[in-house]
Design a binder for these strands. Structure first.
Length: 491
RNA sequence: GGCGCUAUCGUCUAGGGGUUAGGACGUGAGAUUCUCAAUCUUAAAACCCGGGUUCGAUUCCCGGUAGCGCUACCA
């Protein structure tokens, strides 16, 4: 146990304590990010604690997927502990609290107590019979092997007020009489969340507990546990919750994969964009800036900037991603150096069955960077760069707005002649093709569209000259020839 | 039911006793352009309701309402 007198820590110690009951939830990810920001902004220490005491629900695959999510975010931590390995510590702490008379054994069968709770009108606070059981009888029944839960003996009748100053919500207070005698140990001897969490926070000398607002009222219980432990009380800061558009708290069960960070990753969010988006949910730098790098956020981050109202993640059935998250991602994509963008793009191409060389990706990336919002969009935006044979398209698309098949054919014939002899660089192509247009008495639009469709297989594509340079002369000429044939078949 | 927290455009938010209530996303219109995108300009869009306090409240206080959270031998 830490020395209660040595609490005046210089640098903060924070922790992120996920319980491995599934994938990494966006709400958990945000809590992690805020803790990280607080730690790094204040040159403190970040502890990752796996709250894996719920053996019923915890799985190894869940542990893996949480680490996977955290690794993707790219934020580091300094220490790592597993709660399940500290069982002895938790039980000793429970014994110590019991020894001080601050807890009592409750022999009420678990189900029976449930019934009593639900039948009561107000909040269930305590069971007088058990709370007042004599030391002797309690000991006798325990020795006889009768199972019991250990409950905190919350101070009653003294008008005691529990208080703390929350880093986000300010002064908080509650009458101890309104706090129920919560369990410390279950009847199977396992510690409850409240006990394990506080014991570990105390033992790990956590100075700032930054967590979801769903724990705001639990904090009064935690105050009591720290007191029972004789440990210094950490600072608390609660974060507003993330809500779904339907008004409910974002949950795996109700809202499905949209609450998993892997969904964002797989769709092609950049981690820094995802972090940027999550930070803006409940926090503001208060300077009208929204597109921020991780370094900027870290430098700007303070608890003062955290607001108190829950935030809605605005997804729909049609679109699982908040429009602002998508926009931010597009911004971050554009801000990325080409080589980094290429590195991020390659896995998406690979997964789509394309295996372009790194050089090719590097050449393509600048042409599509302003045309994609998610990395996965790159596949459909750039497929024609990688295909040996263009997918079939409607030859009618080759015909410009005000024109006919004959015109389109003339354009493509001329283009072939020009491209056969023009150096394949942007400026030469630009000059030669514009001159060709003039010679045909055409404006740029009607001239370029047939070529673009011929070369890309669609009307909307990156700028024509850059595209042709990447594709190369042979491919361009070949595709234009094929387009001409298609046009002929059209009649 | 009890206790707690919260309330500014559709969404994320800034602001704060006197403001044309600011920004962003999204949406509409226009400009630019070889298409698309990007970019630029522009428009529509908000202080939950009722009482106080005050010369003046969206802002402070109280009440209501609504939403959320906690009220487990879940975390």
């Amino acid at each position: 146990m830490p020395d209660p007198n040595s609490s005046g820590a210089a640098t903060p110690r924070v922790r992120f304590a996920p319980s491995p009951t599934g994938f990494l939830h966006v709400g958990s990810a945000r809590t992690f990010i805020f803790n990280w920001l607080y730690a790094r902004h204040n040159h403190g220490t970040m502890v990752l604690r796996l709250d894996d005491t719920d053996i019923e629900r915890n799985t190894e695959t869940s542990v893996q997927s949480i680490f996977e999510g955290l690794r993707w975010l790219g934020l580091d931590w300094d220490e790592e502990v597993k709660q399940s390995e500290r069982l002895d510590l938790h039980r000793q702490a429970a014994a110590a609290i019991f020894a001080k008379g601050l807890a009592y054994r409750d022999f009420t069968p678990a189900h029976a107590s449930d019934d009593e709770h639900s039948s009561s009108q107000g909040a269930w606070l305590f069971n007088p019979g058990m709370r007042e059981l004599s030391r002797e009888e309690s000991g006798r029944r325990a020795d006889a092997g009768e199972p019991f839960a250990l409950r905190y003996r919350v101070p009653r009748g003294g008008g005691r007020i529990l208080r703390f100053v929350d880093g986000v919500y300010g002064e908080q207070q509650k009458l101890a009489d309104e706090v129920e005698d919560f369990a410390l140990l279950r009847s199977d001897g396992m510690p409850t969340y409240h006990l394990a969490s506080c014991v570990d926070d105390a033992d790990l000398r956590i100075s700032h507990i930054i967590r979801g607002q769903d724990h705001l009222t639990n904090t009064f219980k935690h105050l009591l546990i720290f007191e029972g432990l004789g440990a210094p009380t950490p600072q608390f800061a609660h974060l507003p919750l993330l809500m779904a558009p339907d008004g409910a708290k974002l949950s795996k069960r109700k809202h499905g994969p949209v609450v998993s960070v892997t969904t964002y990753r797989d769709a092609g969010f950049l981690p820094q964009a995802f972090i940027n988006f999550l930070c803006l949910l409940g926090w503001s730098p208060k300077n009208d800036r929204e597109f921020l790098s991780l370094d900027e956020i870290r430098d700007l981050f303070t608890l003062d900037g955290v607001n108190r109202a829950n935030a809605v993640v605005n997804f729909t059935n049609d679109d699982p991603f908040d429009a602002k998250a998508v926009w931010l991602n597009a911004e971050h994509i554009r801000a990325l150096p080409v080589d980094e963008l290429s590195d991020n793009l390659r896995p998406f191409f690979e997964q789509a069955g394309f295996h372009p060389s790194p050089e090719k990706v590097l050449a393509v990336a600048p042409l599509i960077r302003e045309r994609i919002k998610l990395l996965r969009d790159a596949v459909s935006a750039a497929d024609f760069f990688f295909l040996d044979q263009l997918a079939p398209y409607d030859a009618a698309e080759l015909i410009p707005q005000k024109g006919d098949a004959a015109l389109a054919r003339r354009v493509l014939e001329t283009a072939q002649q020009v491209l056969a002899v023009t150096p394949f660089d942007h400026d030469s192509l630009d000059k030669a093709l514009r001159e060709a247009a003039a010679s045909l008495g055409l404006k740029a639009g009607p001239m370029f569209q047939p070529i673009r469709v011929a070369v890309c297989g669609r009307k909307n594509a990156p700028p024509l000259f850059e595209t042709m340079v990447v594709l190369g002369r042979d491919v361009c000429l070949d595709r234009i020839r094929q387009a001409e044939e298609g046009l002929r078949s059209l009649g």
